[in-house]
Design a protein around this nucleic acid. Structure first.
Lengths: 222, 222
DNA sequence: TCGGTTCGGTGACATTGTCACCAAACGGGT
DNA sequence: ACCCGTTTGGTGACAATGTCACCGAACCGA
């Protein structure tokens, strides 16, 4: 795969002036990360800003009691704002970012990042837009957790996780971490979905049989 | 009150070069907002970045079902990042920011904001730090909503809201909106606190009688 | 094949959310 | 002062979700 023109994959950067594009490409490098690589976390500060070209990064919150909840995912074509945050503010986070698949990303060193931020209106807008989009995403997450029924949230998440194909490789425990609930709750909900023949289950996999029905339930949100 | 040197109230800006300080002070203006002023919201885009000098801004999420949840508060000495987000990214938010008290703030026009961002490393760091602090705040909010018991969250919030004095002017309905729960839940919890003589209640007010005990409960979080 | 580990199922119970009410307190108008 | 509509808070029944303790089946490496 040729990533020499990776900038074109980012809508917000297409307007970047030619000389800055060249700067950005020449002074950053394309890296590949194995699945399950920890990109940032309580004990790991990243040294580069990552712009994702392929794969997805899962950002999740770890709580004291060992519980987890998935906050959001960074997809190809997006920047991982938490790496920005880590680069700029020296706080410690209880959240961590993990490569969910193999990840290909443009890694931008801090110095280049700072330089572009000060030079380019376009780049600045790109970064700030990513930030505010994340914040509004988080607002939505909060609303869902606080007010949405679990069956609806589960149906939504199942559909999201089955973008390609109808089979989800995940355990009940992991689905519970997706939604910040307990495994038992997921088991019961999935049993109910199974009873209605919307899904089929086997150890470690969930197969969606009736996406339409799940979609209707998910739409009940409105 | 003399606000001519308001910049000194912001830690992150104290390093700002003298000529930029002057720029910032001369090209922004100090405004006063009445309590309950809507600063930003679904139908209201602010035209200035606000740096709070006095008072607090409450940022809350409105859901379809008319339910509310307080996301965070912006206090004196902090910047309201959502106004930044509104200035830079043209999304529509379901969250709104409301002056909870009378608010005095330095209002920085977009042009000045953009100029300073491109000019000053210090100012950039100030803004980014505010952003990432908000994001980590939201992570904490999510963790609390998802995993924390209601009585603990209520005790924590009561203590937060009683910084000055032991009397909180708030209805059960408003406390429910603070924590994103139902009024009945708050009523029952407060009755329990009352039974233990930790609080006293009368219509529209909650008086904290035993902050120590409430604090101990709140600390159970760890 | 054995034995440990992971995965999912289950029932009992606690906590929280929802619904449908009700009564007391308050506030404004007369 | 009184009336009346509104706000505030209380209550019980029930549904949904979270917690706990336990179990057996499936899986996996030795």
């Amino acid at each position: 795969m040729d990533y020499s023109n990776w900038i074109d994959r980012f809508m917000g950067l297409s307007q970047l002036k030619p000389e800055l594009r060249e700067q950005l490409v020449s002074r950053s490098k394309v890296v590949t990360l194995a699945p399950d690589t920890v990109i940032f976390g309580p004990d790991k500060t990243p040294e580069n800003l990552l712009l994702l070209l392929e794969g997805t990064v899962r950002v999740q919150q770890l709580s004291e009691g060992g519980r987890e909840i998935v906050l959001y995912r960074v997809n190809a074509g997006e920047s991982c704002v938490m790496t920005t945050a880590c680069l700029l503010a020296y706080d410690d986070y209880s959240a961590e970012g993990i490569a969910e698949t193999e990840v290909t990303a443009a890694a931008i060193p801090r110095t280049v990042f700072e330089e572009l931020i000060s030079t380019s209106e376009t780049f600045r807008r790109f970064v700030f837009t990513a930030y505010s989009r994340r914040i509004t995403d988080l607002f939505q997450v909060i609303e869902d957790i606080a007010f949405q029924r679990m069956d609806i949230r589960l149906a939504q998440r199942l559909l999201e996780l089955s973008r390609e194909g109808d089979v989800i490789k995940s355990t009940h425990q992991k689905m519970a971490a997706e939604l910040g609930t307990a495994r038992e709750v997921i088991s019961r909900q999935l049993q109910e979905f199974q009873r209605r023949e919307w899904v089929a289950q086997s150890r470690g996999t969930i197969t969606l049989l009736d996406k339409t029905a799940l979609g209707q339930l998910a739409e009940t949100a409105a």
